[in-house]
């Protein structure tokens, strides 16, 4: 066994958890790059067989975009407050971000409902609805990422209530903050992509 008390290992240039998160985000970006590329590659092929329809995205996806931008702003201020040791503000802003995150989920659900009403179902009833299947898969994959973000937010919020998030303990807060911006930017990219691609 190591007599650990006496040994002082040098600290690492970057916190390992933070670097791991960045690498995870890189991997996850590749998943979206792949699915979005599939959409791009598939489209001309399907169009040549009249098996593709362009459709307008549900309006709720626009609301989701606005919500996710708002939540990024609150997440940023939550991070800033934690850095300034303003714990009460940090706690409230984290709660606000979580609520906005849940709002985003609700808005996504309403958006999917709208798609179903327009007969743009996940399983394509008509050959030209394959484009809708892509929207479903990609938005649902993003939704899973959002769920992960909400779990992180709640965990950070709980830590914040216990006064564990402050200037000298920014580990979890930094992770949550970074990840939440990532899923937000990812959604904005996906929204713009579908908006201009359709």
């Amino acid at each position: 066994m190591v007599k650990s008390k006496k040994i002082k290992d040098p600290s690492y240039p970057v916190a390992p958890a933070k670097l791991n998160l960045w690498l995870f985000m890189l991997a996850s970006s590749m998943l979206f790059a792949a699915t979005v590329s599939a959409f791009v590659v598939h489209r001309p092929d399907a169009e040549s067989r009249q098996a593709w329809t362009a459709f307008d995205l549900p309006i709720f996806f626009l609301y989701s975009t606005i919500i996710v931008i708002a939540s990024s702003v609150t997440a940023y201020y939550a991070y800033k407050m934690a850095k300034n040791d303003e714990l009460a503000h940090n706690k409230n802003l984290l709660l606000g971000t979580t609520i906005l995150g849940i709002g985003f989920c609700i808005s996504q659900f309403l958006g999917w409902q709208q798609m179903v009403r327009l007969d743009l179902t996940f399983v394509n009833a008509r050959p030209e609805d394959i484009s809708a299947s892509y929207v479903w898969v990609i938005t649902m994959l993003h939704f899973l990422h959002i769920l992960g973000g909400i779990i992180l937010l709640i965990a950070t919020w709980v830590q914040s209530i216990r006064l564990n998030v402050h200037k000298k303990n920014m580990g979890l807060m930094t992770l949550t903050h970074t990840y939440w911006h990532f899923v937000g930017v990812l959604w904005i990219f996906l929204y713009l992509f579908f908006y201009f691609a359709q």
Binding site: M1, V2, S4, K5, I7, D9, S11, Y12, P13, V14, A15, P16, A17, K18, K168, N169, M170, G171, T174
Partner: peptide, 15 residues
């Protein structure tokens, strides 16, 4: 930086 130091410390306790 600080989180890294904390991590290194907690890591040692495992030993």
């Amino acid at each position: 930086m600080s989180t890294a130091a904390i991590h290194a410390d907690t890591h040692h306790d495992h030993h």
